[in-house]
């Protein structure tokens, strides 16, 4: 106890470290995932400094060149350095992934918790709206949204985000419902606390775990959804460096003659989504006591 009083910060740090070490030990796959995510995030954040070339400037002298000392991952159709485009592409991917996941997730959180807390007619009505959005074919809605607004990163994000909302709201509502009737919520109500306070202080913390796990899954799904839209020609557009776009062009035209143009962006997508999924799974296992190792 005296140690704690004397060095509270050290101990907190040590506790945090302990938890991290436990996570690494118990979840080796999750740790791999986390590392991948961190690498992608660092690449995206520091693209200006680490990318060897300008990702958008064409160089007709080195079109479709295989990997070499000058271009580690080779060059694409326009002679652009693939490594640089992949590094910048990490930024595009993470912007799309995180913005879609967070906006979709938070909208879902608000709707899910609200729906569960207020119940009754509001719940019924909100659930019907969520039903409609759930049942509506996602890719078709995305196609329509892009057809209405045109391509562009923010429109692609809108197209991807809308379908995420009901899925999040569903899960959050179910978790929130299970604790709505718990005595302490009733107690809080009888104490005359306001809705906002009850929701924020008591209900939200209880749905945070499933919510976080879902967020990590959403990031990966959003990155994949962008790739699917790209395949239909309606994702992010040139010259913006984006993995889905690079993979689409590469896979359609160069899969066998200049495979590096397709392979590296494909790997970038697969690895990143893989990382987020592994990390999400491990997080779920770590948070959910039922799934912890015997």
């Amino acid at each position: 106890m005296t140690v704690a009083a004397d060095h509270p910060i050290t101990l907190r740090r040590r506790r945090w470290l302990d938890a991290a070490l436990t996570f690494v030990r118990r979840q080796p796959l999750g740790t791999v995932g986390l590392v991948v995510v961190i690498v992608a995030a660092l690449a995206g954040l520091s693209a200006e400094w680490i990318a060897p070339y300008n990702p958008t400037s064409n160089d007709f002298a080195v079109m479709t060149e295989p990997p070499s000392a000058a271009h580690w991952l080779g060059t694409d159709q326009f002679g652009r350095d693939l490594l640089s485009r992949i590094i910048y592409g990490a930024r595009t991917a993470l912007i799309i992934g995180f913005v879609s996941a967070f906006v979709g997730g938070f909208a879902g959180l608000v709707l899910g918790v609200g729906s569960a807390y207020f119940g009754g007619l509001i719940d019924l009505a909100l659930q019907r709206v969520m039903d409609i959005l759930m049942a509506f074919p996602l890719i078709i809605m995305a196609l329509a949204v892009v057809a209405i607004f045109g391509t562009g990163v923010q429109n692609v994000i809108i197209a991807i985000t809308v379908p995420l909302i009901p899925r999040c709201a569903r899960v959050v509502r179910a978790s929130a419902l299970s604790i709505r009737e718990v005595p302490y919520i009733d107690a809080a109500r009888t104490c005359g606390f306001g809705h906002v306070r009850i929701i924020l202080r008591h209900m939200v913390p209880n749905v945070v775990a499933p919510f976080l796990i879902m967020l990590t899954a959403f990031v990966g799904q959003a990155i994949l959804a962008e790739a699917s839209l790209s395949y239909l020609g309606l994702g992010v557009q040139e010259p913006v460096p984006a993995w889905g776009l690079m993979l689409q062009g590469g896979a359609e035209e160069y899969a066998s003659t200049a495979p590096w143009i397709a392979i590296f962006p494909g790997l970038a997508i697969a690895l990143t989504v893989f990382g987020f999924s592994l990390f999400g799974d491990a997080l779920r296992d770590a948070i959910d006591p039922k799934l912890r190792e015997r």
């Binding site: 689409q248 893989f274 592994l278």
Partner: peptide, 26 residues
């Protein structure tokens, strides 16, 4: 948490992580 588990999960997650058109073309 055995190696078998890890392999199965890795293969499973790889299935979710690969863009489907890429898998098809390949």
């Amino acid at each position: 948490n055995s190696w078998l588990d890890h392999i199965v999960r890795t293969v499973a997650i790889a299935g979710i992580a690969t863009p489907s058109f890429w898998l098809g073309i390949l």
